[in-house]
């Protein structure tokens, strides 16, 4: 029993050292995917049909195929394309961490753009009309009226997507990245103690996800100003009854 605990302890220490890799992939692809999704959302409401077509095709392509296939396509498939293989981009495309981040950025931006698109449609029309009536245009309208509502509406689904992304980072291990799952597989290859190692890895993922979801829920509550639980003071009667 004592030996067992020592083993789990040393495995956990090894796995914890891989946490930065997982978090790096998550952070890079999370930020890039969100930026890209914002662009895609803007394209989806563009007046000319070409940007809308691009957004629809992007969504169709990346939501309709498994992420693992996209990762393999970028890591193994692109390596066979001559102009990538012998071009300047090769330095990036030979790096499995870069390939995972690229695949996850493309894939998750499609999902996040759909979330933003739904939220944009749910922003009350009256608010936008009121903003226009006050003389707001373009960026000011976006910053003062649309974005605050949109972020609040989108945040719950966005948090879900971030949790999904955390889980997806484990796919990096299939192209030799030593993230939590990768290190876990490595340890198992030496020790053959499958259950202990995978359970320790699962516990780490749960911990990361619990932390993220707590943070995002706190943010959600913070931003939810119009339903904040501050009780309104009863309005004192100011009008004297007519006598």
């Amino acid at each position: 029993m004592g030996e067992h605990l020592t083993f789990i302890g040393s495995v956990t220490a090894q796995l914890v050292r891989a946490v930065p890799v997982t978090l790096l992939i998550l952070a890079v692809s999370g930020v890039c995917a969100t930026v890209l999704a914002t662009g895609l959302t803007a394209m989806s409401v563009a007046r000319s049909p070409l940007p809308r077509l691009i957004q629809r095709t992007w969504t169709f392509l990346f939501r309709g195929t498994p992420l693992i296939l996209q990762i393999f396509m970028i890591y193994y498939g692109f390596a066979m394309v001559p102009w990538i293989r012998h071009g300047l981009l090769w330095a990036a495309f030979r790096d499995p961490v870069f390939c995972t981040c690229l695949a996850m950025t493309c894939c998750c931006s499609a999902y996040i753009a759909e979330i933003f698109r739904g939220a944009l449609a749910a922003v009350p029309r009256g608010e936008i009309e009121a903003g226009r009536a006050c003389g707001m245009t373009g960026f000011l309208l976006l910053r003062r009226v649309i974005a605050p509502s949109l972020i609040r509406i989108a945040l719950p689904s966005y948090s879900n997507e971030i949790i999904m992304m955390t889980k997806s980072t484990s796919l990096a291990s299939t192209i030799t990245v030593l993230d939590i799952t990768g290190v876990a597989q490595q340890v198992i290859a030496h020790s053959y103690r499958t259950l202990d190692v995978f359970c320790a890895a699962a516990a780490l993922y749960l911990l990361i996800n619990a932390t993220l979801s707590t943070l995002l829920t706190a943010l959600e509550r913070r931003l939810d100003v119009d339903r904040a639980p501050t009780p309104l003071a009863p309005i004192p009667p100011t009008l004297e009854p007519l006598s």
């Binding site: 949790i163 955390t166 889980k167 997806s168 980072t169 484990s170 796919l171 291990s173 299939t174 799952t181 876990a184 597989q185 198992i188 053959y192 103690r193 499958t194 259950l195 995978f198 359970c199 890895a201 699962a202 993922y205 749960l206 996800n209 619990a210």
Partner: peptide, 23 residues
């Protein structure tokens, strides 16, 4: 629900495929 939605699918598959036989 919390565990199965918080752990990567890949890990669940690996756990069952390689862990179940040893169990």
């Amino acid at each position: 629900g919390v565990v199965l939605r918080g752990v990567p699918e890949l890990l669940v598959i690996l756990l069952l495929y390689f862990g179940l036989p040893s169990l």
